[in-house]
Simulated scan of single mutants.
Amino acid sequence: MSGRALSRFLAHRAGAFSALVLVALLAAALAAPILAEAMGHDPFAPDLFKRFAPPSAEHPLGTDELGRDLLLRLLYGARVSLAVGLGGALASALIGLAVGLAAAWWGGLVDAVLMRLADGLVALPALPLLIVLAAVDPARIGLPRGALAADLARIIVIVALFGWVKVARITRAAALSILRMDYARAAIALGVSPARLLARHVVPNLAGHVAVATTLSIGAVILLESVLSFLGLGIQPPAASWGAMLANAQDLVFSAPMAAVWPGLAIFVTVVATNFAGDALADALDPKAEARRG
C-alpha cells in the first residue's frame, strides 16, 4: 500500500479504528497462553466447584458451566475463529486468483468452462452443502477425529472449495481490462513470457481488488465457522471456538446469559470490524473515492 493509500485508509475513521480493534484482538489471541500461565488457569480443565462463578479478580468474565475461565476461553476461541477466517479467506483468494487469471489469459473454452463452473457453485445452496460436507466423519477419510489441526484444515478446505468464486470473477474482469492496456500489449509484442507478464504487470495491478474481496470475506468465513461449530460440525471439544461456546451456552440463556453474550459479542464485533476495515481498504485503494466524497 502506497503512502497516499495509507493516508486515505487512516482518514477513514471507522475503518482505521476497526483495523486497530482487529490487531488488538489478534495480539490478545496470540498472547492467550502467556495470560493463562500468568493467571494460573487451564482453560480446558473443568472445575465443577467454580461453575458459573461471577466476574472477579480471579475470573474477570466469570466461569462457564464447567468452571472454566470465560476470558481465557474467549481468547483461545479467538485463535481458532481468526485462524479459520484468515486461512479460509486466503485459501479462497489463492484459488480464485489462479482460476481468474487462467480464464482471462487463455479465454475461449477454458474461460467458458471455468466460469460455468463458478456459476454452478453459485447456484448450489451453499450452507446446506457445507453442512453435509462438514458432517462427514473425518475417520472415514483417514483424518484423526477431534484433533484441532485436522478440524481447522477440514473447515478451511471446505470454505476454500466453495468460496473462490467471487475472487475469480473479480480477477478475471480486472485481468481482462489490464491485458487490453497499451503497456500489456507492448509487453506481449516484445515477447515477454506469460508467467512474467502475469507476475510483473497483471497481478500487481489487480492486487488491490483481490485484497478488498479477501478482507470482506473474512467475516463471512468466521460466521460460517460459528454456524458449523454451533451445530456441532465444526471445531470439536475440548478445543474452544466462539461458535462452540455459543452451542454450549444455548441451554443457559436464562440461567447464565453472559456465557452466551460474550462469544456472541466477540463474533459480532469481529465481523463488523472486518467489514468496516474492508470498506476502508476499498476506499484507500480507489483513487476516485476521495473525489467522489468531495
Rank of each mutant, 00 (worst) to 15 (best):
126 A>I: 11
147 A>M: 12
232 G>F: 07
244 A>V: 08
257 P>R: 03
177 S>D: 10
94 L>N: 01
153 A>F: 15
200 R>T: 11
216 L>S: 09
236 Q>S: 13
76 Y>M: 12
41 H>W: 13
204 P>R: 08
278 G>Y: 11
168 A>N: 05
153 A>T: 15
93 A>D: 04
138 P>W: 06
63 T>R: 02
14 A>C: 03
11 A>P: 00
36 A>Y: 02
198 L>R: 04
5 A>F: 12
183 Y>S: 02
142 G>R: 01
81 S>Y: 13
66 L>S: 13
100 G>L: 00
168 A>E: 01
174 A>F: 02
195 A>R: 15
171 T>C: 09
146 G>M: 01
176 L>S: 10
125 P>A: 01
45 A>W: 00
80 V>C: 07
30 L>P: 11
108 G>W: 09
245 M>E: 15
261 V>K: 00
275 N>S: 13
139 A>E: 13
171 T>N: 02
172 R>V: 05
207 A>T: 14
198 L>N: 01
15 G>D: 05
210 V>R: 14
104 A>T: 03
173 A>F: 12
218 I>L: 10
161 L>E: 07
109 L>N: 00
209 H>C: 10
42 D>Q: 04
264 G>K: 06
64 D>N: 10
175 A>Y: 03
31 A>T: 08
218 I>T: 04
243 G>Y: 11
278 G>S: 09
